[in-house]
Design a protein around this nucleic acid. Structure first.
Lengths: 105, 105
DNA sequence: CTGTATCCTGATTGATACTG
DNA sequence: CAGTATCAATCAGGATACAG
């Protein structure tokens, strides 16, 4: 089922957050590290690699001293934005729905 | 972030599949078990319970002998359909995108 | 600065047997 | 039929130290 392709690609606790971060423009490794609070270096590095393989982002090395690396969304990666919007809107509805009934989670 | 509310609620390897199954109409426990291939009884039972708490589905017991239980989507649960559609469409694009480049996954 | 390697822990899943 | 209990296996994620 194609749904699961999408889920796999966006899978991982942080991918959506990383994409959201990159929607504002290119970011360096350390910048993402700062913006995405709570992520560990290992996980960030792994998720970025996966996202690059899945063509969501592109990675460019700038050979300064020391080197810096810039990550940016591809057009394709940018096309995730509608999904985030839909999820976000639905999530807000969900809160109202739940609080109507009782308080949990 | 509201996105993660949505993700939490739809979280679990099977929820989307279960919802998709229920979009065709109410199903009994054993029917879902048959339709959703690969799921274990324990996991199905737990996910159904979570989904009930989150108001995605409703559970009704029919006191036949032996008893049967029917699960159906609430209106709210049905409102997940657009999300599934969007994810599905994006997932298809993804396949094309990936196969353009190389063959993996 | 941008990662990789290693080790560790808790959560998730599954198989199986059992209950009402 | 519709679950629950128990146990074993797997895995994602994190802390830390280290490398280019």
């Amino acid at each position: 089922m194609a749904v699961h392709d999408a889920i796999d690609v966006l899978n991982g606790k942080w991918k959506i957050t990383i994409i959201t971060c990159l929607l504002f423009g290119p970011r360096r490794y350390s910048e993402i590290m700062r913006d995405v609070k709570g992520i560990s270096g290992k996980v960030l590095s792994r998720e970025l690699k996966e996202m690059e393989i899945n063509l969501l982002i592109s990675r460019s090395v700038i050979s300064t001293q020391p080197i810096t690396v810039s990550y940016s969304l591809t057009d394709y990666g940018t096309s995730v934005q509608p999904i985030i919007t839909v999820l976000s809107e639905w999530g807000q509805t969900h809160r109202k729905q739940i609080s109507k009934k009782t308080k949990d989670r």
